[in-house]
Amino acid sequence: MNNVYLYNDSFNELISLIFYLLKNNIKPTNIKDVSYNPNLFEECIFLGIKSKEQDINNIALQFGYYAFRCIYYVYLSNNESKELIIYYFILNAIKYRKKITYMRNLKCVHETLRIAEYVSHETHKMKGFTRFKEINNNILYAEIEPVNNILELVSKHFEKRLKNEYWIIKDVQRRLFSVYDKKNFYIIPEENLKLEDFRISKEEKEIKEMWQLFYKTIGIKERKNDRCRMNFMPKRYWKYLIEMEDEL
């Protein structure tokens, strides 16, 4: 039987589970969160390992902050085998310590760094591509559909940038809201938040049209280059980019 070890979907629990497996010399076929549906040849094992603060600190102290950040970003990615990649990364990091991030010839390190970079790039893109509109008395509201689970990373950016505004960002695919009350942001599942009486402000249409007009005007037609634009701004982000409305 192939053993699949399960964890409650949280970063801390995943890390503590991995440390437990490594300590006890258990080789998992896979590691998945509890919602996983096993196939015929797999057996799911839930050990109920409680998360320990110490495990998280150990990663940062022993492998370095950069390695820690990479592991966390892989956890946020949508990669199918992200848990196993993290498992093998930590397995090797115990040997190489802070040198681990230079060992790109190891597949797990190569993959970890590659995926972490991908998540970080998407976060950076989303900082630019998120579009807010004003609803119910000055609340800024935006919807995003990122490939990776970067709502938290994006919120951290807007927490600083729009700190004197109330704002809500929705990850449409994952059905999560990030709600900011001018002090902190909270990530809340869709079922726990009722957005009633969704009224868009009067001036919203006017401002949106101004932006669309600016967008159209600023491009130089003698230099038109669709391929270049598509490289920088892939079509899957267009849905919420209001300036692209006409071209969709």
Partner: peptide, 29 residues
């Protein structure tokens, strides 16, 4: 960083859109 106001700047810069000529739009030019 602004203490009480709106906005900050990012050291790496952020592109917000790309015009039809493929150039980045970051500032209201």
């Amino acid at each position: 960083t602004s203490k009480n106001g709106l906005g900050n700047t990012a050291i790496a810069g952020i592109c917000h859109s790309f015009a039809s000529d493929g150039r980045c739009i970051s500032l209201l030019k």
